[in-house]
Design a binder for these strands. Structure first.
Lengths: 164, 164
DNA sequence: ATCGGTTTGTTGACATGTCAATCATGCACG
DNA sequence: CGTGCATGATTGACATGTCAACAAACCGAT
């Protein structure tokens, strides 16, 4: 019966429950807001946002996957759907015949420009506005530490792929 | 161009990035640990855990869905799979012919008993151990406040279903 | 140049979740 | 006691993500 397990106290269970509810509810709420107020889902938004931040609005699929910390197949499937919708375009990469350069279409650009204010407002109103400065900073360090711990444990996704 | 959007500062973007990475990475890490060390996925674990906590180990599907804050169809699909795997059983509810009582099988009980220590250790080692007391409490209040804010905004899942 | 191992990206099978539709039952109110 | 609406649960179509297998291109050592 593995008697050396350090079980959670009542209070720890309470904290854990709050965290777990947030973890699984936040993303779907963010998705819901975007789908309600724009033409984009949250994952589509993050792809277009990454492209917006790139110097010339172009990224190789490889770099996009690294930046988003996604599996390649996930990105590939999503890009196919986004290409069908007319949000992005693919072009062969001249310097590496295996690679593809991904860029926004005009429709993709229009979509993220239209979606951005609502998305930013969602984040501001539901993450930053409700928290005190101390809570915000503690949340930051807690999130960073938890992520680091999971990485150390070898349980983070894309364990092989090093970021940056 | 919606000039009144309150965009995020550099530091806020940093906090937001850390939170977003945690939000989408934590669950899959938890899932990965469970699948590696047991016969259960994270969602299966949470169903069996809820049943374990019930008085006589039995819950109606309705109450299970409320407790987990899930959509009914999600639960229904999952229960069908779990029944196929032999983890749970369904029995007609005598007091309400629409309802079903869900209970663990012996295999389900064995599975969660075997999985629990590893799962609890994952939570303890990656959530509680890395944080100071202050960080833990701030994380708790931050998670609670963010969730409340999303609920107030009407963007939480199962908006119709009241908890409890 | 070429051989073997690595990287890049796609694909198909499958697991899971959402949504809308459906159906039966329960319940409140006339 | 019925009529009509609310509730409980399932189902099927679809969207999305994971995993393993694959093919093509790169690269480094000979």
């Amino acid at each position: 019966m593995s008697s050396d397990t350090r079980w959670l106290s009542e209070h720890e269970q309470e904290v854990w429950r709050a965290l777990r509810e947030l973890l699984w509810g936040f993303e779907s709420a963010m998705d819901r807001q975007l789908i309600r107020d724009s033409e984009l889902s949250a994952v589509e938004y993050s792809v277009l946002a990454a492209l917006s931040e790139a110097d010339d609005g172009v990224l190789r699929a490889r770099d996009l996957a690294r930046q988003l910390d996604w599996e390649r197949s996930r990105l590939s499937h999503l890009l196919k759907r986004m290409e069908t919708k007319g949000l992005v375009m693919r072009a062969e990469c001249p310097s590496d015949l295996r690679g593809y350069n991904i860029m926004m279409t005009k429709a993709g650009h229009d979509a993220i420009v239209q979606a951005a204010p609502g998305h930013v407002s969602f984040v501001r109103e539901n993450v930053f506005d409700p928290l005190t400065d101390e809570e915000r900073e503690a949340l930051f360090s807690a999130a960073t530490k938890i992520q680091a711990s999971i990485r150390d444990a070898g349980l983070w996704q894309n364990q092989g792929a090093q970021k940056g």
